[in-house]
Design a protein around this nucleic acid. Structure first.
Length: 203
DNA sequence: ACGCCTTTGAAGCAA
DNA sequence: TTGCTTCAAAGGCGT
């Protein structure tokens, strides 16, 4: 059985290379050159090339949306790499690969929730709102995008719903044991308990 | 330094 | 099944 372990973050390109199942063109590699330590059958592979190491995007989002023009230098994924350091809570996770093979990945990186349709839309359109120069703050931009989202045709919205569905499927394949509950309480502090938004308590 | 704000949707959980 | 909560992204702002 092929076993693959990696320290840090393993991108889907890695999976593609090892498994031959995933399309390398679908995602960019998320890995830090100096931290990547992939072994297959006891052999450690060479560090990834500079180009792939320089690309850092969400491992679950298709290149369609997360091309470099959509990933600004301030992207948290890039930050996660530049600030990456081995964590004491590093642990191994094993994920299934093709034909029953399994991948064991040592990672300290939190597996995030897959983006929903609106989040994908926001990620794609945020820079357009910024270019318009009317809004600067994210909260204001999100309000604008929320209104535009509702103004979208069903056909246009379905594009993002389909994309979100693909991402959820991919997420399930990559992290079969993952649950959204895993990230509950990971934030430093809970959001304020005061009722707001669409979930307003009825007195 | 870190949480809040603000949006929609998915998922989890309690009742 | 229903209703509520939390988290996903983003970055300026306030403490």
């Amino acid at each position: 059985m092929e076993r693959l372990s990696c320290r840090g973050v393993m991108g889907l390109s890695d999976l593609h290379h090892r498994c031959g199942k995933l399309q390398a063109s679908d995602w960019c590699l998320l890995s830090q050159k100096q931290d990547l330590n992939v072994t297959i059958g006891g052999q450690t592979n060479a560090p990834q090339d500079e180009a792939s190491a320089a690309l850092s995007v969400h491992p679950l989002v298709p290149l369609l949306l997360y091309s470099d023009r959509h990933v600004p230098p301030s992207s948290p994924y890039i930050q996660s790499i530049t600030s990456y350091a081995p964590q004491p809570d590093m642990h191994f996770k094993t994920y299934p690969c093709h034909h029953g093979n399994r991948i064991t990945c040592r990672t300290s990186v939190q597996v995030k929730k897959p983006l929903n349709a609106f989040m994908l839309y926001m990620k794609e359109m945020r820079h357009k709102v910024l270019q318009e120069g009317r809004e600067r703050e994210s909260a204001a931009i999100n309000r604008v995008l929320g209104r535009r989202w509702h103004a979208l045709s069903h056909c246009e919205q379905s594009k993002y719903y389909d994309l979100a569905q693909k991402e959820r499927r991919l997420h399930m394949q990559l992290y079969p044991g993952w649950s959204a509950r895993d990230n509950y309480g990971k934030r430093k502090k809970r959001r304020s308990q005061k009722p707001k938004g669409k979930y307003v308590r009825l007195a």
